[in-house]
Simulated scan of single mutants.
Amino acid sequence: MKTKTTFIARYSETDQMGIIHHSTYPVWFEVGRTNFLKTAGHSNTDIESRGILLPLYEMNCQFKVPAKFEDELIVETCIKNISRVRVIFSYKVINCSNHTLIATGETMHAWTNHSLKPINIEKVASDIYLSLMRVFKE
């Protein structure tokens, strides 16, 4: 499964050169990931209300061409890999008007409890694990 989250680049996201600042991309990845989880049937609020957290432990981003103020963009999000203790999300940022690939990236997350102790998501919340496994295989 892949979700597509569309939005317009805001002026506050630009730098002095008039392009989207690199610090904005993690925020866009989070928007895409939040939409992905909700589409998969488990919102962040629902997951966290069950005592489960998904902290980020690693992230990367490769910039291809600059995005600019008022560009209409899509963040395509999918699961690259999932296990009982981790999940890796993959992202593509695409300009809607010319279908140019703006950036790619990944975020790596661990399943933990509120004390940030690693958990086995299949044992703690098998419904979340099974539904994410199902969309991963789609």
Rank of each mutant, 00 (worst) to 15 (best):
M1D: 07
K2D: 09
K2H: 05
K2N: 05
T3M: 08
T3K: 04
K4Y: 15
K4D: 14
T5D: 04
T5Y: 13
A9W: 09
R10P: 03
Y11E: 11
S12I: 11
S12Y: 12
S12G: 10
T14M: 09
D15F: 11
D15A: 06
M17E: 11
G18R: 03
G18F: 02
G18I: 03
Y25L: 08
P26N: 12
V27W: 09
F29Y: 13
E30D: 14
V31E: 13
L37F: 09
K38V: 00
H42T: 01
S43W: 04
N44T: 10
S49Q: 13
R50N: 15
G51L: 03
L54V: 14
P55E: 05
L56Q: 12
E58F: 10
M59L: 07
M59Q: 09
Q62L: 08
Q62T: 12
F63S: 02
A67F: 09
E70S: 15
E70I: 06
E72M: 10
I74S: 13
K80D: 15
K80E: 14
S83F: 04
V85W: 06
V87K: 00
V87P: 00
S90P: 05
I94E: 01
I94R: 00
N95Y: 00
S97I: 03
S97P: 01
T100P: 00
T100Y: 09
L101D: 06
I102A: 00
I102G: 00
A103T: 01
T104V: 05
M108L: 05
H109P: 05
W111M: 03
S115A: 15
K117Y: 07
I119H: 03
N120W: 09
I121A: 03
I121V: 05
E122N: 13
K123N: 11
K123F: 01
A125N: 14
S126Y: 08
D127S: 14
L130I: 12
R134W: 05
